[in-house]
């Protein structure tokens, strides 16, 4: 009799496990990114999405036991296409701001608040920040320049904001330091940072639909795990020129 119950119990347990695991694997989460913002996210020479966020996203999905796929979407429409359900999360170097928080929810930050820098051609004075400044459309930097005394020229992609400075269309480009750094380092002195810096935004987080509180909680927990075990710090050091012990 006892043997029978134990067999039955084992069978029930197995069935329950099978059910549970099938529900775990059934959930596919689509991650939307821009693919044009190195080192956060970019399309590498193999045509695949690469960068810091690719690695963070894949690891978070592994921890949260989610089956994730990557989707490319222009920056311009990245929030509208999230709320209309084309994908389930934005992971695209997006800073957490109150304005965006009214439309979507954010996870906690997986990249800390970072000052925004002005980059210009060699020999440009600091007064260029009041001249013509380029920034990417719908970014916190574009919002800041629009409010300031400078003249804002907006571009759809981050790369075009830099091309505008090189061609002389803009006096300076205003963007995240982490994005601009490589351009300055590799320009051979052709491009420089101006002295003024501005602190904007509350760090980079994942954007998720407000109704999707369950997914936000899962990613928050996974980010916690990565912060505690040091794997997030390791990835930051790898992609951001050796920045150490951020979290």
């Amino acid at each position: 009799m006892t043997q029978f119950t134990s067999v039955a119990r084992t069978a029930a347990l197995a069935a329950a496990l099978a059910l549970a695991s099938s529900t775990v694997f059934a959930e596919t989460v689509r991650l939307g990114t821009e693919g044009a913002y190195p080192p956060f996210n970019f399309v590498n020479d193999s045509g695949e999405i690469d960068g810091y966020e690719r690695e963070v996203g894949d690891m978070l999905c592994k921890i949260a036991e989610l089956d994730c796929t990557w989707v490319k979407n222009d920056w311009d429409s990245i929030i509208p296409n999230l709320v209309s359900g084309n994908y389930d999360a934005i992971i695209a170097g997006m800073s957490i701001t109150d304005e965006r928080d009214e439309v979507i929810d954010f996870t906690q930050d997986y990249y800390p608040p970072d000052p925004s820098f002005y980059m210009a051609l060699k020999g440009t004075g600091d007064d260029a920040i009041n001249g013509v400044v380029s920034a990417q459309t719908s970014t916190i930097q574009a919002g800041y320049i629009a409010e300031s005394d400078a003249t804002l020229v907006e571009f759809a992609t981050p790369d075009e904001t830099i091309a505008a400075v090189k061609s002389g269309e803009a006096d300076a480009v205003f963007a995240d330091e982490a994005f601009l750094r490589k351009y300055v380092d590799e320009s051979g002195g052709e491009l420089i940072f101006l002295t003024p810096t501005v602190s904007l935004g509350g760090g980079v987080g994942m954007g998720i639909r407000e109704s999707d509180t369950e997914l936000t909680a899962k990613f928050n927990a996974a980010i916690d795990t990565m912060k505690k075990d040091g794997s997030l710090n390791a990835l930051i050091a790898k992609w951001f020129d050796g920045r150490k012990d951020v979290y």
Binding site: A36, P38, D45, G51, D159, E160, I162, A163, K182, Y183
Partner: peptide, 9 residues
């Protein structure tokens, strides 16, 4: 678009 050292080419 211009490509920095994050890319192979």
């Amino acid at each position: 678009g211009s490509k920095t050292g994050y890319f192979q080419y």
